[in-house]
Design a protein around this nucleic acid. Structure first.
Length: 458
DNA sequence: ATCGGCTCGCGCAA
DNA sequence: TGCGCGAAGCCGAT
């Protein structure tokens, strides 16, 4: 069952005669627990038509490199196999997603798309709705509670959005059953431009930026996501509330890269955790807080603040206090190149940076410390913001995600409160190495990162 | 080990 | 209009 609040018509055109119902896949890169796909199947079955799923693969997706493409293509290979088993054609065309969707919409009775909150994702959908000559229907499948239902404005903090989300949460935590397409489309005669399973050839063809290498630590795809989730529920959920912050343990689900590419449904994830036999009540609550309240606060942020990647998006008290301290003396004025090479005086920070550069991931607690130090060590707060976001989007598999933009801005005061005033930070929350050492086994974090980095260089 | 102070502004009660 | 309180903080006092 798909909640009606997930579904929205993007134009005023009625359904027409056509050869198939088209699902234009972009954000929700999965063939299971995908409400947009399920709506397409059900609309097609009602019309006695086949369903076609298309995907536009572009060479210059904003800030993407070989690391991101490899992970995404591993996921699309999963999608291809799963759809094939169900008799559904998966048509991958080279080109901008909206262009690909529009060209295939010419023969479609109806076009169904998923939903994204970043500026380019919204623009593509807007463009398709404007130019298509068939009905365009959008289905939200990557948040638990649809963003407009929660709030009509940028929320100030977790505490203001939490009650709004929790009011609606359980109504949207329902299974999405994978249905059967009555009429196969596999032999309909639509061919892909390229075989997504041949990752190396795709990267070659698209001439993707290879300066950032793929990682061994994470393989993309829905089946990999589900296997990791099962491992987390079995081994990591019990004690999660207390253990999740210990950097040397990585007691986390590692779902953020998979959620970023839509390879797993947050609803499925939440239901699995909620109904798990492992884990205490507070461990589950803590995980659901991260997955739903904080992740959807980030979605609220990028949706209502189109300047989510600019310093000026910060709340006025944060901008004011940072400007008042913009000319404070910097004790460690590192260049962004020195930071990128992990060449600072701080061994904890260097370890975090190495985890990021070599493995595409960083422990969540260290992400906060990492960003705070870039603020402390950069010539201006604006430069620090730009450097943090650039490194974030270049190296993280889950970079360029709403959660990334919110997390970076959090380091500069977003969704936070003022604290005791001090040099450089002003009233922005401060973090230091002494705090890390007081609370955590930081020597072990460094040793563990060394092992991870060695495994990548194998 | 634990606690209060630091500081801003939202949301609710009145 | 007043008041309670919050996403991870630090620091000094007890």
């Amino acid at each position: 069952m798909i909640q009606p609040e997930r579904i929205k018509s993007l134009n005023d055109i009625a359904a027409k005669n056509g050869a198939y119902v088209l699902y234009w896949m972009q954000q929700s890169q999965r063939a299971s627990a995908n409400p947009a796909l399920e709506l397409a199947i059900s609309e097609a079955n009602q019309r006695r038509l086949p369903v076609v799923v298309c995907f536009g693969l572009m060479a210059d997706y904003p800030e993407a490199n070989a690391r991101h493409y490899t992970f995404m293509l591993q996921g699309l290979r999963d999608v291809d196999q799963q759809l094939r088993k169900r008799g559904i054609a998966f048509v991958v065309k080279l080109g901008r997603p909206d262009t690909v969707a529009l060209s295939l919409s010419a023969d479609a009775a109806l076009l169904i798309c998923d939903r994204g909150y970043l500026r380019h994702q919204k623009f593509w959908r807007h463009n398709v709705a404007l130019k298509a000559d068939c009905a365009v229907i959008q289905v939200e499948g990557d948040l638990v509670v649809p963003v407009e239902l929660v709030s009509d404005k940028a929320e100030y903090a977790a505490r203001t959005i939490r009650p709004r989300i929790l009011r609606n949460r359980d109504e949207f935590l329902t299974d999405c059953v994978d249905g059967e397409a009555d009429i196969p489309s596999i032999d309909i005669g639509l061919e892909s431009d390229i075989d997504v399973a041949d990752v190396e050839r795709v990267i070659e063809t698209l001439n993707v930026d290879r300066s950032v290498r793929p990682v061994r630590r994470f393989a993309g795809g829905t089946s990999e996501a589900r296997a990791r989730l099962e491992t987390f529920i079995r081994n990591g959920l019990d004690g999660y509330a207390d253990g999740r912050n210990e950097p040397s343990e990585w007691q986390c689900s590692f779902m953020s890269p998979y959620l970023h590419f839509g390879q797993i449904s947050p609803v499925e994830l939440a239901l699995e955790v909620k109904d798990a036999s492992d884990g205490q009540r507070n461990d589950k609550a803590s995980y659901l807080e991260e997955l739903i309240v904080r992740r959807e606060l980030a979605a609220n942020f990028v949706h209502f603040q189109p300047d989510y990647d600019r310093f000026d998006v910060l709340p006025s008290w944060a901008r004011r206090t940072l400007h008042e301290h913009a000319s404070d003396r910097r004790e460690y004025p590192y260049t962004s190149a020195e930071l990128e090479r992990a060449e600072t005086h701080d061994p904890f920070w260097n370890a975090a940076m190495r985890e990021m550069v070599h493995t595409g991931f960083m422990h969540n607690y260290m992400r906060m410390y990492w960003g705070k130090k870039i603020l402390e060590w950069s010539p201006t707060p604006e430069a620090a913001f730009a450097t943090t976001l650039h490194l974030n989007n270049t190296y993280f598999l889950d970079g360029r995600d709403p959660s990334s933009y919110a997390a970076v801005a959090w380091c500069f005061g977003l969704h936070d409160r003022a604290w005791a005033e001090r040099s450089i930070f002003g009233k922005i929350r401060f973090m230091n190495a002494a705090g890390l050492q007081r609370k955590f086994d930081m020597d072990r974090y460094i040793t563990e990162v060394d092992k991870l980095v060695a495994a990548e260089k194998r």
